[in-house]
């Protein structure tokens, strides 16, 4: 999907030649140290940033030359900090995800209503529908944003750190929700994740970035190794198999609190 991408902000180049193909129907997690370019990659793939060189292809066509509205019918985006207008209800906010499907007069159609209802139902926010978004907890609010992205009915969903600011129970809840969407609707998910163990547990494919390049890419079992983490994060760690998921997980090694056995 991404071909030889070079991109950045205000003349400062962040991505130095990234090639990435997103596997359809899979959950892909992008990991990497701060400022390695993972958010920039996601934003460039979401057409928020125009690449200095290279192309982002969606169904074989450059995303930056297609009409932004036609892209929005295929590709949904949840940025890191979206804004909720003061006093808006959950149902009204979710309905704004229908925008790319609406014409000039933008009357809400029966199809729009159905899509909103389905999205509320799928995210367990149906009983919040008439509540004001301001009054929701962080976890509820994140589910509402995901509901909005679902109402957009896209095949592809890009999320920038969807679990930030959530406690661990809500992090699991949000990721489980995304897995449900992936399983039941076949939505291709690409997300930037901070928590490495959650990334290794939930993703079908991991993309590890370092200094504007892709350092490693593949299924967690093959990619998520101690040498990779050492190289990408500069962190000594041990990788073991997580007994609950059978996926790899890492235990960081610091300079303190190390038992004799761990060496």
């Amino acid at each position: 999907m991404a071909e030889g991408l070079f991109a950045g902000y205000d003349g400062r180049q962040v991505l130095h030649g990234v090639d990435l193909t997103v596997e359809t129907g899979a959950v892909t997690a992008i990991i990497g140290a701060n400022a390695c370019g993972k958010s920039t990659l996601l934003k460039t793939m979401a057409r928020l940033i125009m690449p200095q060189a290279g192309r982002v292809l969606l169904d074989g066509e450059s995303i930056h030359t297609r009409s932004t509205r036609s892209v929005a019918r295929v590709l949904g985006l949840l940025p890191q900090s979206p804004l909720a207008p003061e006093g808006i209800t959950v149902a009204d906010l979710v309905a704004r995800g229908r925008r790319p499907h609406q014409g000039f007069l933008s009357r809400q159609s029966v199809r729009d209503d159905a899509a909103v209802a389905t999205a509320l139902e799928a995210t367990g926010t149906l009983d919040l529908a008439e509540r004001s978004v301001d009054a929701l907890s962080g976890g509820q609010r994140q589910r509402v944003w995901i509901a909005m992205a679902l109402a957009q009915e896209t095949e592809l969903l890009l999320l920038d750190e969807p679990t930030t600011f959530l406690d661990v129970a809500h992090q699991i809840e949000v990721l489980d929700l995304l897995m449900d969407m992936n399983a039941s609707r076949g939505i291709t998910v690409v997300m930037v994740l901070h928590d490495l163990n959650l990334a290794a547990r939930y993703a079908d494919r991991l993309v590890a970035m370092k200094a504007g390049h892709i350092y490693a890419e593949g299924p967690p079992g093959a990619v998520f190794t101690a040498p990779m983490l050492q190289a990408v994060f500069g962190l000594r760690c041990e990788v073991i198999i997580d007994p609950t998921s059978g996926r790899p997980m890492m235990l960081p090694k610091g300079r303190h609190r190390m038992s004799e056995r761990a060496g």
Partner: peptide
Amino acid sequence: PRLNSLALGDELAAGVG
């Protein structure tokens, strides 16, 4: 209708086309 999208933040507004 476009201002409704803009109210969600510039990134999400672009995201909904």
